[in-house]
Design a protein around this nucleic acid. Structure first.
Lengths: 345, 345
DNA sequence: TTGTACGCGTTATCAC
DNA sequence: GTGATAACGCGTACAA
């Protein structure tokens, strides 16, 4: 079936396409008579305006793009949900894209979005060029040189001046390490994310700083380099089991890695909170499956999503927009216990 | 900055816009000389073609829409990931939309997608009109009358003739009930999804049939009506605890409800596999957090996503497309144990 | 209040 | 192989 155009509607209503257009876009300069006939005809024919043609004229699409790192990571799924609801409240449609933690897929999606002239972009940046260089990837540079309203979310990117909405875990990690230190923990491991992401780098730096503040060993040998995904969490867990002098506590930098790690430790017979104290980043619903309940460091993602959309809206309105840094929360739960004796006799 | 058009590129390359277009869209009727100059100019100016204008001419957008019920449900997140990868392999961009299990949000997204003239739609339908009527929602009817290639995924919809890619759990539920019956279970509860979704209805019907096949009580009083979300799983768990004669086993129709239910039961001191045997639909990574490991009934979502895209591609190519019904798998794990004694002395 | 005519950026159709 | 030109569907300045 041929798509129904505004001309078809106009013909059916016995008016010109200009009048039909005016009626359909709410222009007040229309008579009641034509208004009735046009709306009736449009409904009758099932007219759906061609957004391509419309935005070719008006250069506005009332849509934004959201690029996340990994749809299957509950953290980003929650963020996507929050952004979508906030955007919907402003009459914006959200196109969600999945980068798979891969700069190439990120760029593909961004190119498609720029081609479709979205009004703005919310970007969880996927790190630098695959060249290993120090510049942002081509599509991201393109975004900036073309002055497309862009807000970085969750992560920042070196050399990119766009405003961002992120979360700082400095205080939460300080609290968490204080709690561990109080319970006698001296060797605390860190299962981190990929170095090139700002979140991974910051979380580890904050962790080191918190250790130092409590007079604990701040060597780099208790740092496992994961990639934010489940299998690398399992690897990290095995790495920890293989350490000569086993740490008594561990901090894991996101929830998929925590899932992978906890499964390995349980299989190895380690009880969380008893044999090994565990703190995981993110506080996802599925953590309720774990016994004992997991201590977490988490962000309010609804807030993050809402603020990201607010910031982007400012930018799209031509107003200058400031960056926001939210605070993370440390939640103490039973997966933290007293440090086990070292080398029990 | 003004967007760079193909005319700018043509001018910079010293050719006509027609030649520039031919070069940029890979038309072989071009000389090596102009090819070089045009590609150089395009790169120099950072040209990005306007997809609106392009598809205004060519009526193809090389994009598809995927509407899922709930981004935060890992089942649909996995499906979205699978679809996206499969579509990408065919050069199609996927726009993911989230309906929140709400027909109104479904229709909003579908309208936006129709406006943008996507080449096809993969739809997890959100049930009937809010009127409670028996017809599909307006946007879905629109999709069909306009003959937009559409494939139903995961769920079907009464009265909609579009091909579908779904999964049948008939055999898996038969296996699961057989396993429970063998272990002495006679009272088996079912925490189901919303009746108006085909998956919820089918799963419950198959469950009832499996019970009957094993000569078990098939009354309707052990059926809790949930909504596929975590809080309703918790409600279902409390409902089960309040039953006069407590069932010894339970089947839960999706993973978020399982998460909600298991947390409640643990808090109440019930051990899965000992006090209550548990089988959950879906086999998500996060289930690894649970001890003992959960018995599951699951689908291969990568397969489902791939086939959905295959089917849609056939439709878009004008070929007739057949529906596919995949088979679910029952995985026996330690959350199933012997039926506890009833009314122990 | 309404209709005519033009242009948004691109591709397809013709001539050359 | 290349260039001029029409057309995609819509919104709007202008004229009536």
């Amino acid at each position: 079936m041929q798509p129904v155009t505004i001309r078809d509607v106009a013909r059916a209503a016995g008016v010109s396409s200009a009048t039909a257009s005016r009626v359909l876009s709410g222009n007040p300069a229309t008579s009641e008579a034509s208004r009735d006939r046009v709306t009736a005809a449009a409904a009758e024919l099932g007219f759906s305006p061609n957004a391509q043609a419309r935005s070719l004229r008006s250069t506005r699409t009332d849509s934004i793009a959201l690029l996340i790192s990994d749809v299957r990571n509950p953290y980003f799924a929650d963020l996507a949900h929050a952004v979508e609801q906030a955007a919907r409240n402003r009459g914006l449609v959200t196109f969600i894209g999945n980068a798979n933690e891969d700069p190439a897929q990120q760029d593909e999606f961004l190119d498609a979005m720029m081609s479709r002239r979205v009004d703005g972009v919310l970007l969880v940046p996927q790190g630098l060029d695959s060249d290993g260089g120090t510049r942002p990837s081509p599509a991201v540079e393109h975004l900036l040189t073309r002055d497309i309203p862009t807000v970085l979310v969750d992560r920042t990117l070196a050399g990119v001046a766009a405003p961002h909405v992120t979360a700082s875990s400095t205080a939460a990690l300080h609290d968490a390490v204080a709690r561990l230190a109080r319970d006698g923990h001296r060797r605390i491991a860190f299962i981190g994310g990929p170095e090139h992401t700002s979140t991974a780098a910051e979380r580890y730096a904050d962790f080191r700083a918190a250790l130092a503040a409590h007079g604990l060993d701040a060597g780099d040998d208790l740092h496992f380099h994961g990639d934010f995904r489940t299998p690398s969490g399992a690897e990290g867990a095995r790495w920890l089991l293989g350490l000569e002098e086993r740490p008594t506590a561990v901090v894991i930098a996101d929830s998929p890695m925590a899932i992978g790690a906890l499964a390995v430790w349980r299989e190895a017979g380690l009880a969380a909170g008893t044999d090994l104290s565990v703190i995981a980043f993110d506080d996802i619903e599925a953590f309720a499956l774990h016994d004992p309940p997991l201590a977490t460091i988490s962000h309010d993602l609804t807030d993050m999503g809402r603020r990201a959309v607010d910031t982007l809206a400012d930018l799209m309105a031509g107003q200058p927009a400031a960056s926001t840094v939210l605070r993370s929360t440390f939640t103490d739960r039973a997966s933290i216990g007293p440090a086990a004796e070292r080398n029990p006799a």
